[in-house]
Design a protein around this nucleic acid. Sequence first.
DNA 1: ACGCTAATGGAAACCGTTGTCAGATTCACC
DNA 2: GGTGAATCTGACAACGGTTTCCATTAGCGT
Lengths: 366, 366
Amino acid sequence: MGRPIRTRRQATLASLAAELGVSRTTVSNAYNRPDQLSPELRRRVLETARRLGYPGPDPVARSLRTRRAGAVGLLLTENLSYAFRDPAAVGVLEGLALACEDAGVGLHLVPASPGREDVAAVHRAGVDGFVVYSVPDDDPHLAAVLERPVPTVIIDQPSIEGIDRVGPDDAAAVGKIAEHLVGLGHRQVGVICMRLARERNDDFVSPTRQSGAHFHVQRTRLEALAVAFSAAGVDWAGVPVVERFDHTVDDGASAARQLLDAYPQITAVICTSDILALGAMAEAERRGLRVPQDLTVTGFDGIAEAERIGLTTVHQPVLEKGKMAGRLLLSSGERSAPKVITLPTELRVGRTSAPPRTVEEPWFGG
Amino acid sequence: MGRPIRTRRQATLASLAAELGVSRTTVSNAYNRPDQLSPELRRRVLETARRLGYPGPDPVARSLRTRRAGAVGLLLTENLSYAFRDPAAVGVLEGLALACEDAGVGLHLVPASPGREDVAAVHRAGVDGFVVYSVPDDDPHLAAVLERPVPTVIIDQPSIEGIDRVGPDDAAAVGKIAEHLVGLGHRQVGVICMRLARERNDDFVSPTRQSGAHFHVQRTRLEALAVAFSAAGVDWAGVPVVERFDHTVDDGASAARQLLDAYPQITAVICTSDILALGAMAEAERRGLRVPQDLTVTGFDGIAEAERIGLTTVHQPVLEKGKMAGRLLLSSGERSAPKVITLPTELRVGRTSAPPRTVEEPWFGG
DNA sequence: ACGCTAATGGAAACCGTTGTCAGATTCACC
DNA sequence: GGTGAATCTGACAACGGTTTCCATTAGCGT
C-alpha cells in the first residue's frame, strides 16, 4: 500500500513553518491551541497549509509525542466469521463501538491470524488499551495482550488476576433454563454446544473434553447444566452433548440431526446459543417433529430473531456487555483496584418449550 | 486512561541496550532481523527484555519510523446502531475484516461522532488507508478522509474522481424486483425506504426529497423503481414512499402501518432493505393480511433471516463487497488508475410475492 | 603469516510531532 | 517615558524506534 501519486515530498509541520517564516511551535499551536496565537496568524497558517496540501499534523507522530494512540484494541477470536455472524457477538461489538464513540476514540480490530501463531499483530497495534472477547483461555494472543503495558478488560473470560472483567452470570442463567425444563418434566435431554477448544471436533463430546474446554463460556454453561440436571436426579453422564466448531444455523441443524439420530428418545434439545437453536428447529421441522409438542428446543443469548420466532431462551444484555467493557477500559487509570462486573440475565419463555410428549410415558407412569 | 500501576519508568529499547551494554541497533535487530545477530546474543537480549519487563518495540514509534501504521480506517455512518443491526452492513464489515486479516493489518473503526461535526477523529486516526461505507454524500467526515494523503476506497457511494469504488449494480437489481412485481400484475404499490438524508423524516417522502437524497444507495434504488414502474405505465408520482430514519424491524412495521392506513388499496409493499421488509411482514400479520395472498412484500439485500423465512428479495454479495474493498485498498500503490468494481445481484423469489389479490378487480375488470 | 570475505555489532541520521521555558514584542496605563 | 502585564514566538529536548552505512572481527584458504 503506497502513498498516492504525489511526487513532491509530503509537507510537514516544519516545511510549513519554513514556508511561513514562523516556528514549528506556532504551526502546531495553530492546530492544537488556537488561543495561543492571534486569529489572523492562525488563519494565515491554515490557509497556507491548504495551499501546500498539508493535511494537518501526522497522527502517528502526534501519538508518539503525546503517548496517546486514541484507540482501543479489540482482540477477537481468530474465527472472524463466528464473531460477525452471531448477533450476540455483534451486539457486544456494537456496545463497545458505542462506548468508544462516546469517548471519541477509535476501535482497532486486531488481526488474530488463524493457523500460524502470529502474535506480532498484537505487538504492532498502536492502542491505549485492549478488550479481549471470546478467545480461548490458552490463546497466545491473549498472553501477548497481557504483556503489553496497557490496561485491559476481558469479556466472557475466566478471571485473570488484576484484570478488569465483565460477563453475565452464566451459571445462574443456565440454571434457569435447566430449572424450566426440569419443571416441565423433561428428563431425557440432549445438548448442542459451540466449540470447546481450538481443535475441531464436530461430534459428541467426551466428559474429559467437557471439563477441559478452553472456551470459558461454553465450559461454564455445560458445567451449570450438569449441576442443575444432576440436582434434579438426571444422570449427567448419560446426557449426550454434541459439539460444533463453526457457529451457523446449518451447523445447529446438523448437530440436531446427529443428536436425534442417535438418541430419538430425547424430548428437549438444549442449545448453548440461539443460532444453534434456530438450526435445531429447522432440523425438527425437516423431521416432521412439531415444536414444542414433539420436541422442546431452547437457546441462549436472546437475539432479535429468537424473539421474533418465539424461541425459549435466556436473554443476556449483550449491548451492555460491550458498553460496560468500553467504559471500564476508558475509565481505568482513575481506579486502581480491578473491577469485575456481572450482568443480569433473564429467562424468556417462548413458544418452543412445553412438557415432554407423552407417547412414551406408559413406560414410566402406566 | 493511564498506564498501569508501574512506578518505575517503562523500559525502552535504549534502556535495554544500556543494560546489556550493546547498541540500540542490536536490540532492534533482535526483534526485527534475527539473522543480523548471533543467536546467542539474541537470546540474551530477549531474556533481559523479559527480566526488565520490556514489552518489545513500541508500535507507535515503529509506525512513525517505518511510515506504516499497519491498519486501515473504516469510516461508517455516525449511526452505529444502524451499521451493526443490519446484517447486510455487518456482512460488509465481516468481508472487510477478513481481507484485513489476510493482509495482517488491523481494522480501525473511526468514531464519527454524531451531532457535533467533529472531524478530528479522522485526522487523528493512524491508518494507511480508508474505507468509506454508507455515509451521506455531504458528510464532512468523508471530506476529511479525502484530504488525508492515503489511499481510499468507497463502498456504495457515488463515484468520486480518482477514488476506488465498489458497489452493486443497484439500479439493475431494483429493476429486477420491479419487473417481477409488474409481471405478477401489481400496479398499486407502496415503498418503504431507509433514511434519505441526515435530517430525520419519519413520514411520506416528497418528490423533492426523493431526488435530493444524500444517501446514494437509497436514491439510486428509488430512481430505479421510478424508471421501472413508469416504464410499466404506473404513474410514479402516485406511488407513496414512506421513509424511516432508524433501521429496525419495528420501524419497518410502523412504516407499513402508516402506508397501509393511508393507502389500503396497495397490493405490494416494496422495501429497500430486508430488515424493513421483516417489519412490514409483521405488520401485515398484525392486520390479518396473509402474505402473499393479500399482500406482497419484497425486501432487498438477501440477509440470512430473509432466506430462512422465504422473503422475496434481491441478494447482493455483501461479504464480497467488503472483501473487495479491502483487497482494493491493500493493493493500491501497485496500480495507478483508480478502479471501479461492480458486483452482481440476483433476484430471489420467495414465498412472499404473488399476484395481487383479486377482491377489488371488479372495479377494473368487471 | 597474509589477504580476502563474511559475519557481526555500532554510530548517527531521521521519522514528524509536542511541550516547556525563556525571551521578545506589544500595549495600556500611570 | 517607564513599567508591568499580556501575548506571541522560537530554541531545544524529548518521544521510541528503524535503517543506512561503517568498522571491526573472525574464519578460511593458501
